[in-house]
Design a protein around this nucleic acid. Structure first.
Lengths: 295, 295
DNA sequence: AACTTGTTTTTTATGGACAATAAACTACAG
DNA sequence: CTGTAGTTTATTGTCCATAAAAAACAAGTT
């Protein structure tokens, strides 16, 4: 049976919307709320009905109005607002990291279903989607096989990454001067400089910054296949950052410096410098990654 | 409920295996048959039981033996040996081709399930897998959307294709002289020459040859991501070949000539020639594809 | 021990049920 | 006729049941 996470999430969103109102003020029409809350009108009506039931709003025949402002206890638990499929996603990644799996290990749908407290269908659907990352593979009539994050995998990943990023970087500097990407780049530059001074305090914020920077560059090629491929990179880096914490601060310090050089080169629009700094950074990133991959 | 296509397929395979025997000759052990037929021992036993039931083999306590050779009527229908998921795959592609869908069209799981005579779960699973081709996209709580094979799609596809194939072609000529790929290439060259003389007779055999040639080249890079990407190309070309039959013979004639030049260049191991012929062919292929894409 | 077949357990493939959600339809008021 | 709320219909997300198939276990034979 479908769970009602959409309803609960919408309910909570409506509560915080009501929080900005005054008691007595009228409530917007269902279609306006539908837009605002990003759910169907059916769900909005269910939320309104519950709010009336709880005495938070009034649904008189001549229009609806706020009775009292919602309190923090009115909201549903945050955990109840996340759909089963998202839960599976999260739990699967944790599971992958927790037990240190080896290439060739089999993944058991039923077992995961029990561990995660969802049905096998949920697992099955997730694994099907997850297979696009090439970390697992399906054997007909017999479950999934963990392919593992091997040295070959990393090398192949970086081969494509270098191709794509170099091309994207070239496309980046070919953008018109007034493209929004330039402002975004300067803003990322500022963030890098800030993080550089605070790297010892919040050094794992770098993971996020790294992704935003490389995505910005890759987006310049306006190619969905390049964008897709960056999803694979992101996943692997996320996985890797979680997995290998040794020298994290030092690795990030180096990467920030390389990024700043790369950003300078992009801002200068000097192709030779861009190619040099981009290649240098990627080679360095590859070395770091390879160092933490099992033989 | 699971269907028994594996059993039926195995049964048929066993029949043709028995066809090579003599009446009276002994039957191999279950584990040998398991290897040979590529199924589990459970399935092999089920097959043997049915063969005994039908009086085709004897299962006496001192060993099993052939009683009579199977006849053509003994086999199961071919249609019964194809799993539901494969049926869905086939029917979905036909469906995509038949009705000329426009970008933005929604795909209805229930509707497809009814048309294909399978459950919605089957459709759902297939669409999830199919989404990797980027031709459809999922909207949360509201079905799938056909993205369409647009001009942008084709251009982005070819941008990546050119990058990958050029790199693969370079890797190809860097292979040692005794690599198996060289023999395979010469054999493909012969097939091209043959097809060239018969192009007017069997001009749609080219589609298959085309795929095998480009796969061979791309395999030289030994990169799973490049291989994966070629799956997308294959699908699109298959789709396109089915869809646009106009000038097919002429298009193929041109492509065969270009392939032969490209193959010559590869065999010569002359990088400049390889790059020139490869680029020329891909540009030409792109032009052909774009010509048949809706605006 | 290495193989064999018989038996039991585990796991997958597929269909189907059903509440939640979205979307469509209807009627009424300004 | 446009926008509103009420009502009905269609579709999706999730779970569960069950036969098929795989895998594991057991025991006998050479």
């Amino acid at each position: 049976m479908k769970n009602d996470t959409v309803y609960k999430k919408t309910f909570n969103a409506m509560l915080s919307h009501l929080g900005e109102q005054q008691p007595g003020s009228p409530i917007q029409s269902e279609s306006v709320l539908k837009q605002r809350l990003g759910a169907s009108r059916t769900t909005v009506r269910k939320v309104l009905a519950e709010l009336a039931e709880r005495g938070i709003i009034d649904m008189g025949p001549q229009g609806r109005s706020v009775i009292r402002l919602p309190q923090s206890g009115d909201a549903f638990e945050r955990a109840d607002t996340v759909s089963t499929s998202l839960q599976v996603e999260k739990k699967f990644m944790e599971w992958l990291l927790r037990a240190d799996r080896k290439p060739g290990d089999v993944i058991n749908e039923l077992d995961l279903a029990r561990q995660f407290g969802v049905s096998t269908s949920g697992i099955r659907e997730y694994l099907n989607r997850f297979s696009r990352f090439r970390l697992i593979e399906k054997r007909a009539n017999s479950g999934w096989c963990f392919m593992g994050f091997t040295k070959d995998f990393a090398l192949e990943l970086f081969e494509v990454r270098e191709m794509f990023e170099l091309r994207s970087a070239r496309a980046f500097i070919a953008q018109p001067h007034d493209a929004l990407a330039w402002a975004a780049l300067r803003s990322l530059q500022a963030e890098h400089l800030l993080l550089q001074t605070e790297v010892s305090l919040r050094f794992h914020d770098f993971s996020d910054l790294d992704e935003r920077f490389h995505r910005l560059v890759n987006d310049a090629s306006h190619n969905r296949f390049i964008g897709d491929f960056y999803d694979v990179i992101s996943l692997i880096f996320h996985y890797h950052y979680q997995w290998n914490k040794s020298d994290e601060a030092e690795r990030n310090r180096v990467a920030i410096t390389e990024h700043l050089d790369y950003i300078d080169a992009l801002l200068s629009r000097d192709l030779t410098r861009v190619e040099a700094t981009c290649t240098f950074h990627l080679k360095s990133a590859r070395k770091t990654l390879l160092a933490s991959v099992r033989a």
